[in-house]
Design a protein around this nucleic acid. Sequence first.
DNA 1: CAGGATCCGATCGGATACTG
DNA 2: CAGTATCCGATCGGATCCTG
Lengths: 139, 139
Amino acid sequence: MKESEAKHPTDTHQACAATPLGRAIHLLGDSWVLLIVMNLLQGPLRFNMLRATLGHISSKTLASRLRLLEELGFVQRQAFLEIPPRVEYHLTEKGRELGDVIAALERFGNKHLSDSVVSPTCEECIALDGEAPAVKDVR
Amino acid sequence: MKESEAKHPTDTHQACAATPLGRAIHLLGDSWVLLIVMNLLQGPLRFNMLRATLGHISSKTLASRLRLLEELGFVQRQAFLEIPPRVEYHLTEKGRELGDVIAALERFGNKHLSDSVVSPTCEECIALDGEAPAVKDVR
DNA sequence: CAGGATCCGATCGGATACTG
DNA sequence: CAGTATCCGATCGGATCCTG
């Protein structure tokens, strides 16, 4: 370990959490988080519904991201004590503001990442197809 | 492998590259890319300069991200045939538009991720400190 | 100086099985 | 249904060494 005096492994968080932007990058520099928020922007969803919408994602991964988002106060977990159990996740006021970021992302994507460039990797990405996320005017 | 008929490993690209937004998420769902672009927004930088600015990042990782960004046409690689070699990376017109996303990210960070919540992880994150990225309209 | 090639450990994320 | 605990393979990213 000498290439630059690194200390932690996976220093992806290097330019890390010291600055707000750094934290934002660290948080949103995660596809899952982005995807989850994106879906939640369209309304509350239940655990498995969210999973289905996301396509392939293990319950483990989904649970961890949801927990993270909840801890940060961007997502509100609402559990109904019934049988079978039902849990709905919905964005909080703060969380909904992530819509701005998603919107920027979408605008950028539509403008420069329209089906043309970029190597096609997945073919059955039906999850988000069709129903245009329509994040745009979330407020 | 049965939890949802996944086919590829690391299906992070699941809600994948089928839609522009999906691709944007896939691309920007990477801290390094975000960080690199952020720094490049302030002006062209040379390979090692960029590395230094980013804090800890291996040449391998940096090179791969730069290559990716270059292939997508967001970064322009300009090599000077001299000795010692000099290579400057600067954002293209398209790449500069990523500033909008970064700006949204920054706005969000300043608003909801200001030093308070979030577990402090790194202490010497001086890389981005001080000189506020000044993406432009920090609001 | 800019980066390619390799080796390798750490981490992430998926699959499975199990519980309330 | 909504997770949690565990096992484990695939990938990522860092460190090194090396070349133009």
